[in-house]
Design a protein around this nucleic acid. Structure first.
Lengths: 340, 340
DNA sequence: AAAAGTCACGAAAACGGTTTCGTGTTAACA
DNA sequence: TGTTAACACGAAACCGTTTTCGTGACTTTT
């Protein structure tokens, strides 16, 4: 990189002190108009830009927010990033994005790098491996260092920090209720392993809705997908039973379930209603299009970053963790059209 | 944030100088073993972490790479990010991600922020508005400041920097050829406005393939989509003509074209073959699934970042811009299954 | 016993800015 | 004419770290 022009260069070149240059560039009243004009003209001419690092060091703040996500090639998370970036930008912050790839080790490392002063605060959605391990000491360390931290979507209660979540239980309930209202009785649930708590919460909603209709949850039509293995194969198992509805906790599972249904000669939505989660492109463009629970990733990201910035900027106040719950909406599409 | 422990704190507390502490923490031979042990123990106990900002200022490098993308909620770009992050991480860099939202103004601003010393180099895919304006002075400014810059996918030739692109002409050719090989003759092209040069290049490939078969490109079955207006409506126009193939320059257009075909009672792939671009989730999960040109976003991102880091780390050598061309593959799916 | 070398550490500059607190000069005032 | 205030600028400290170059106290060599 070319040698950058600094305040020192200007000072030397113009025969004044660095303080004078600094003040002149800030239009301070302490400096005479002629001097100011001279300095500003020179700075302009040579395209002077103040060095961010120096300012950050002096001000002890970076105006950067760290973000750690489990993955990025994923509609929900990319939407959240967008929300975070938007919110951050509006307040003059930039974001530094990292990925844990669902790995505990990478999450710990990334957290360490980010907490070395490179960022003013951190937003995280926890890796699934970490959720499985239940080892949250790296987060607790952050909290005790009082580095502002906001968790979203995949959160755990015993980390004392701000959180933004969707009402997963409510959403699971809403989805299941919708199927029941369509006259479906044997509703399969395609979910994640138990340690991914959002899956567990959505399942609670599912069970709650069933109980209200005096239907007993049937373990045979519930499957917890192991992402390492063949997903479709696992889904086929629930189709051995006779079912008339499917609630999948994400849109990929929903799409795969529709494929399996097709194999079995079941017509969606006539024979089978399908509902997914996360309103992504698959749901929109598959055919038939899939009814989903919209998670409002953009809103989540934006709320998370606003919470974080608030925490960063007024740290004087006594700390009391906040939890924001984003409500989710049912987005009706073809896969649950009532057979008229 | 809590008051962080610094080298000064340690020095004062232990009654030694900061230089001693610094050296002790680096296990320098200049320091006696007892002193080292004492200092290291203290540092460990109080969880000392060197301040990144100070190091960055001193070393004049941040180990951060800036990335500016037109958008994120998009399969291709999120895949590229993944590639960039992966490659960067492997070399000890982090990434700072920003979005231009296809806006010229935002691109200029973002570039300004990043070039203030916050990053060691920048990777960009140009905003469509900028491509339309043809105003590239902000990039040329970067180049003349000798800030390492790599452009990818949406590039322009007269910016003198490294570039990573897909072979768009070849890909367009490959896609069209595939349709022709399936016996299709009247192939519609659904593309972007001319200023988005990837669209234009893919069109060249399309025309080349047609010419080889002595087919004249027919303006009536080519549509340049204006994203502001109703996309489906625009696609319907080409269906007024009798067509038996569709080449869409991205997967959204391909999916929408299939919807229109359905409206018109055309069966895919029996009556109509459809081929898209970007191997995303829509192509994979739509039904019928869509044959596409896989763009290898991950590879692009990785190559781009490797090129950039090389440029950053050995800047001694004389500058000669490199251009890496990534070849693209045809991913066969249901939408172009030969009618047997 | 003088010269040289080793050891263990400290002082100070440097990275690029901001900011507080002088200070010398001039002008206004008593 | 002496005091004071305003003006325009500079010196120096500071943010946290690294690194070069001393330097004083011993030890070894001749």
């Amino acid at each position: 990189m070319k040698q950058k022009i600094t305040i020192k260069t200007i000072a030397k070149e113009l025969g004044v002190s660095t303080s004078t240059v600094s003040k002149a560039l800030k239009d301070s009243h302490e400096i005479s108009i002629e001097t100011k004009e001279k300095i500003q003209a020179y700075a302009n001419l040579y395209n002077y830009k103040p060095n961010h690092l120096a300012l950050q060091l002096r001000n002890q703040k970076t105006k950067v927010i760290g973000v750690i996500l489990p993955k990025i090639v994923h509609h929900f998370f990319s939407t959240v990033i967008k929300g975070i970036e938007d919110g951050a930008n509006a307040k003059g912050y930039n974001i530094m994005v990292c990925f844990s790839n669902e790995s505990y080790k990478k999450e710990v490392e990334t957290l360490k790098v980010l907490s070395n002063g490179s960022v003013d605060g951190i937003i995280v959605s926890i890796a699934s491996e970490t959720l499985e391990n239940k080892d949250f000491n790296h987060f607790k360390g952050l909290v005790s260092e009082e580095i502002p931290l906001v968790l979203f979507d995949r959160v755990v209660d015993d980390i004392l920090c701000d959180k933004v979540v969707v009402d997963d239980v409510g959403a699971g309930y809403k989805a299941t209720k919708h199927l029941l209202d369509n006259g479906r009785k044997k509703i399969a649930l395609i979910t994640t392993p138990k340690h991914v708590n959002v899956g567990t919460l959505r399942r609670q909603g599912y069970e709650k809705a069933l109980i209200e209709e005096y239907i007993k949850a049937d373990e045979n039509i519930i499957v917890e997908i192991d992402e390492e293995a063949n997903i479709k194969e696992q889904i086929r198992k629930v189709f051995i039973q006779e079912i008339d509805g499917v609630f999948a906790v994400n849109e990929i599972y929903a799409a795969k379930a529709m494929r399996v249904a097709k194999e079995k000669g079941l017509k969606v939505p006539q024979d089978l209603s399908v509902i997914g989660f996360t309103d992504g492109l698959i749901s929109e463009y598959s055919s038939p299009s899939i009814t989903t629970i919209a998670q409002h990733g953009f809103t989540m990201g934006k709320q998370a970053v606003e919470l974080l910035i608030e925490r960063i900027e007024k740290e004087s106040e006594t700390f009391k963790p906040k939890k924001i719950v984003i409500s989710s909406d049912l987005k009706l599409r073809e896969s649950t059209k009532p057979s008229s």
